[in-house]
């Protein structure tokens, strides 16, 4: 977590596209519901990624008022995932194959082996415990800014992909070069693009 509790690590974006009149609270709620988190507790799915409410990560109804905080919108990117170590799968498959040989009198052919392994994998996946990761998102509409309480390449890619699917708005990661291009007057932007490293040693 981060923005409500604890010490956040943040990734910062600029929302490049201007918000049109279409972006009412109703519309935003509808889009959040469309790409809300889907519970995979009772399935054999490996992972699920979607939006949940900021103040209740178990809820994804997005009723009016649950995602608007003053001039800002806020929600959580929730990712549930489970992992089945190959060692576990191989261990149980060896038992299954042994039973198959006893029953049929020969080893399964490659097609049967694939089928047995996939069924077993799904069965074991259902029994694996899920782990949940939550990343708060704050959308500061008055500043056209977006904060993700988390960092890392994979998280950024997942977030950017889901954000685009949900709202269709282009965002730009704020890193030194993009921040510099925003901070300097427009006539100095080319200078930023032409900069080369300078030596800062004591020689």
């Amino acid at each position: 977590m981060g923005l409500i509790k604890g010490n956040p690590t943040l990734t910062r974006y600029r929302v490049v596209d201007q918000l049109t009149d279409e972006f009412t609270e109703d519309f935003i709620g509808e889009r959040l519901r469309k790409f809300a988190f889907i519970d995979i507790e009772k399935t054999s799915e490996e992972s699920s990624l979607g939006w949940v409410e900021l103040l209740n990560e178990l809820s994804y109804d997005f009723q009016l008022g649950s995602f608007r905080f003053g001039p800002n919108y806020a929600f959580i990117l929730r990712q549930d995932s489970r992992k089945l170590p190959p060692k576990i799968l191989n261990r149980y498959y060896a038992v299954l194959e042994n039973d198959f040989v006893k029953k049929i009198g020969r080893k399964p052919n490659s097609v049967k082996k694939k089928e047995l392994k996939e069924n077993l994998r799904q069965d074991l996946m259902r029994r694996c415990l899920l782990s949940t990761d939550l990343y708060e998102v704050a959308w500061l509409t008055t500043k056209n800014e977006l904060w993700l309480a988390g960092a890392g390449e994979k998280l950024r890619a997942n977030f950017e992909d889901l954000w685009l699917k949900t709202f269709g708005l282009t965002i730009r990661l704020l890193v030194p070069v993009t921040l510099a291009l925003e901070l300097v007057p427009p006539h100095r932007r080319e200078d930023i693009l032409e900069l080369v490293p300078s030596l800062m040693d004591g020689k």
Partner: peptide
């Protein structure tokens, strides 16, 4: 690489 804060501690806002 990002100039974005990691492990940010605020002294003026108490943890909720």
């Amino acid at each position: 690489d990002t100039l974005s804060p990691q492990g940010l501690k605020f002294s003026t806002v108490k943890d909720t």
